[in-house]
Simulated scan of single mutants.
Amino acid sequence: MVALVQSVWLLVLLTPACRGGDPHPAPDNMSPIMNLKLDSRKKMLTWNYRRHVSQQNCSIQTPGDPDTSTVPRVGDNDTYFCTFPNAVLHRGASLRVRGISDGDAFQEVLTFNNSGVEGTGAVNFSCLIYDVRFMNCSWAPGPAAPADAQYRLYAWLSADDEEKECVHYITDSTETHVGCHFDQLGEPKRTDNYFFFVNGTSKDTAIEFVDFTPFVAVNMEKYNPPANITVRYNGSNHIIRWDNPVIRFDLASHILYYELDLQRKGGFPKKDPVFQRGQDRNVYLVPGSEAKMQSTLRMRVRHLRNKIWSEWTDPVRFGIPEEGDGTMVSLAVLVVVAAALPMVVMFFCKNLSGRVMNKLSAHGRVMGMAVRASANSPQGKLRHGG
């Protein structure tokens, strides 16, 4: 009996040691993932593992979009992460991490929902780069937004950048933020993408946040109008030349797309516009059949692959007036005046010369009389008698 008790006591002592000292071991079917979290601004899913994992991947599913998968990366403190920069999260999302651990497949799912009330988030969001170095973004309050809703815009250039809140808000008549002006865009690169995130606050209502797919910077620019437009007639055609506008990004000239609006004066039907790709030296020849017609020209330009047109240039008038045109009468008058001008000048010069000679002659007679009178005076006689 004593031997049996000692054997049982020895078994109690040895059992914890055989389990590695853990009185509460994890079940074999427990997920190896810990601390699964989503940063909705950076669209980054992060987590840690409690044991070795292989063949892992992560994916996201959002309403109306196909599933997107990627391979996790490891960062500081053995934290794994996946980023989904093109995902739109404000409509909700389902994120999954899959892998193999100890020979068994596992899956962990995180369901994400927008905590704001539907219809309170900002709507009609858009951004535009202009004058090479400035950018404006604008939006409108959501249709279900309360009167005290206030919105805030955050922007960054890549997933590795820290988001920055707008510094120069544009407000409406109720002081609600409805836009943002950026006056420091930094040095441009053709690979620039802009990321935006708009959230809001209200005393009584949770405001939806709104996020977007990345804005491709080269497609956001509104160009200045074409510059230095000239029209020259070579005897048979009018030759139109112009310079490409100064733009923010270093792009080839053929990526520019021009519209020329050429209209004839005198009640002619409206002409269809002319479209032309950019060149290093831009030239357009007006057809010879239209060379003598009085015409006007205005132009605008955009990037070939977007729809953001520049403003129109001021109208440029050109053409050779036809016979009977009031302009020809004016030219004839100018020719007559130019021909008569030398004769008029000669007449005035001759008349002026005669007047001067007459005045000099009269002045000479007066001086002669004064000299004779002086000689006949007593003083004069004394001077001459000596």
Rank of each mutant, 00 (worst) to 15 (best):
R372H: 08
L256D: 00
G364Q: 14
M343W: 15
V329T: 13
N234A: 01
A149G: 06
T327D: 11
D39C: 05
A26D: 13
L11I: 10
D272S: 03
H181K: 05
G319S: 14
P143A: 03
N136E: 03
N57K: 15
D161K: 12
R73K: 15
L36V: 04
T174K: 08
Q263N: 15
H384A: 11
I239Q: 11
C137I: 03
T46H: 04
F212N: 09
S158E: 12
S115I: 13
I207L: 10
P321T: 15
F112C: 12
V2T: 05
H254N: 01
N228C: 00
R300P: 10
N136I: 01
L334H: 07
W139F: 08
G119S: 04
A370L: 01
A291L: 12
I60G: 00
T213W: 02
R355K: 12
M293R: 07
W309P: 15
Q55G: 09
L331E: 15
L13E: 07
D280V: 03
D204A: 07
L13V: 03
K222N: 06
F125Y: 13
D22N: 08
L285D: 11
M34V: 11
V97M: 12
E108A: 10
L14T: 13
R302C: 07
V316K: 09
M44P: 00
N35I: 02
L128K: 07
L38P: 01
R50M: 04
V123E: 08
